[in-house]
Amino acid sequence: MSNMTRTTTESSITIHELRKSYAKTRKGEQPYAVDGVSFEVPRGQFVTLLGPSGCGKTTTLRCIAGLEQPDDGQIIMAGQTVFDGARSIQIRPEDRPIAMVPQSYGIWPHMTVLDNAAFPLRHGRNRKGQQNIKQRTLEMLEQVGLSAYADRWATQLSGGQQQRLALARALLSEPEVLLLDEPLSNLDAKLRAKLRLELRAFQEQFGVTSVYVTHDQAEALALSDIVVVMNQGRIEQIDRPERLYQQPKSAFVADFIGSANLIPAREVTSVSGGVLAKTDVGTFLCAGEGQETTTTALGGNVCVRPENVEIDAATYSRNGLSDRNEMSGRVIGAEFLGDRLELVIDLAGTKLTASAPAALTARPGDDVVVRVNPTHARYLAS
């Protein structure tokens, strides 16, 4: 399998203005399940399509696979145009340089583990000229930890083992692109956490370009080089996992990726070093990358992650508070979670969630001071 190693950074997939609709409304309108989606998948990278149910991520993956025919747009894969709405090009799934691991794994129950894995070598698009099929298959099963089960019926494997078998079969077809449609969703939480580490290790080992679909934020952040966040058929943001979390570009992304306090802004003004946002609970200076604005704006939200809220439960003077990023509140909820204390604080009628040190003595009814470092406050216009 050494010929699968990728050493360049060129794109394996280019999606341009992809659109797909399933039905028209009574008024004759055509709602799109995928509405003008464009992105690139760099060669050898692990890219995840992330979003809530019905956002268009699975439809996008099925269009890439050729299982759905888009209404418009373009899909280029490994330098070949496999779909072009304007030129009426639609390459069949079996002729695309892909392999797919579906949610149900697609394991054939009447075949042994060896025969399941060897299927693409015997019957796939590259079957001609294949030699030493059994040896190559056993070598792949060894790499995914299934060589001892080669002669067993596939139905005798556990859920995790079936997932590895589906992956082995996909890799043996030597795809340019590996497509994975929520392959861990049928497993329990503990096994999912274990297998996502294995999946990422296998992807890096073989260097195959991968497109993964999930609604699980933890999976997306843990597995991906790049995450494409989708909402209502459109892309909200494309970025590295750490930037998605630390620098969301919209309220949807901030709220969907992890936990976020979104405080409505009444007025926003550009200042030296960032943005000054006036809210009903106080004024926030939002500093840092991507916070520049040149005009006074209305609306939007100030985004603050719970772990970035500083709590001071000591006695204080209300008159001594700063006019920025510091305000008084009252604890209305507290949960001890072992390593931290999750607090809900009432700030002039607005609820703020904070993750405080476990040793903090604040309890419901206590008055506290809330502080937010400007570098941890982010203004989101949408």
Rank of each mutant, 00 (worst) to 15 (best):
361 T>S: 15
68 E>A: 04
214 T>E: 04
322 S>M: 08
334 A>D: 10
3 N>Q: 10
337 L>T: 12
370 V>A: 02
298 L>F: 03
230 M>F: 10
66 G>Q: 13
11 S>A: 15
180 L>R: 04
86 A>V: 09
123 H>C: 06
181 D>W: 02
7 T>E: 10
134 K>Q: 13
137 T>F: 08
146 L>C: 03
225 D>N: 11
226 I>W: 00
115 D>M: 09
322 S>H: 14
340 R>E: 09
202 F>A: 12
75 I>T: 02
354 A>E: 11
302 V>N: 10
284 F>P: 14
95 D>S: 09
155 T>Y: 10
337 L>H: 09
226 I>Y: 00
357 P>V: 11
63 C>Q: 01
31 P>G: 07
230 M>T: 02
158 S>W: 08
379 Y>Q: 09
30 Q>Y: 03
111 M>F: 13
208 V>C: 06
141 L>P: 07
195 L>T: 01
123 H>R: 13
84 D>G: 11
157 L>V: 10
87 R>N: 13
325 N>A: 06
2 S>A: 03
110 H>P: 09
224 S>Y: 06
8 T>M: 01
118 A>C: 07
38 S>V: 12
220 A>H: 13
267 E>P: 02
297 A>W: 08
267 E>W: 00
109 P>C: 02
244 L>Q: 04
368 V>Y: 07
329 G>H: 08
362 A>W: 00
352 L>E: 03
48 T>S: 14
273 G>P: 01
341 L>P: 04
314 A>G: 06
306 P>D: 09
130 Q>A: 10
355 S>M: 05
54 G>N: 08
258 G>S: 09
227 V>P: 05
29 E>D: 14
310 E>C: 11
153 W>P: 05
162 Q>N: 10
114 L>V: 13
330 R>P: 07
94 E>M: 03
251 A>D: 14
318 R>Q: 10
38 S>D: 05
368 V>L: 08
333 G>D: 14
347 L>T: 12
167 L>M: 15
164 R>L: 12
60 T>C: 05
8 T>K: 05
175 P>M: 11
153 W>H: 15
164 R>Q: 03
293 T>S: 01
242 E>D: 15
100 M>D: 01
40 E>V: 04
125 R>C: 00
13 I>M: 05
77 M>N: 06
25 T>M: 13
358 A>F: 12
173 S>D: 13
352 L>T: 02
5 T>K: 15
295 T>M: 08
100 M>W: 01
58 T>F: 04
142 E>D: 13
251 A>L: 07
244 L>R: 06
293 T>A: 04
190 K>M: 07
16 H>K: 15
204 E>I: 09
137 T>H: 06
80 Q>E: 15
140 M>A: 03
41 V>A: 06
219 E>W: 07
223 L>A: 03
215 H>P: 01
210 S>E: 12
2 S>H: 10
204 E>L: 14
23 A>G: 01
147 S>P: 00
267 E>N: 07
48 T>P: 08
369 V>H: 11
79 G>M: 11
217 Q>H: 02
